[in-house]
């Protein structure tokens, strides 16, 4: 599975970082950076990150 963030929608709330620190982080400028490839072990937390995003900027696809 791969995760994709629409960076035009993303407002860097960083809540995906709470939910899935395995794939999401805020850099020194408080801007979102992410790893697209999702390990099976982290799939549920990434699904949670998708659900929690206030602007629904994250999609998960195979």
């Amino acid at each position: 599975m791969r995760v994709q963030v629409n960076m035009d929608r993303c407002q860097h709330y960083g809540q995906c970082v709470f939910e899935a620190p395995s794939n999401f982080a805020l850099n020194d400028e408080d801007l979102l950076e992410y790893v697209a490839e999702v390990d099976d072990a982290n799939l549920e937390e990434v699904r949670s990150a998708v659900a929690v995003c206030p602007v629904q900027a994250i999609t998960l696809r195979s």
Partner: peptide, 19 residues
Amino acid sequence: PRQPHLGFGFGRHSCLGMN
């Protein structure tokens, strides 16, 4: 060290005016 806080709430109702 940087750590997410809940000053603007959390989830779908997070503060619309955060920016």
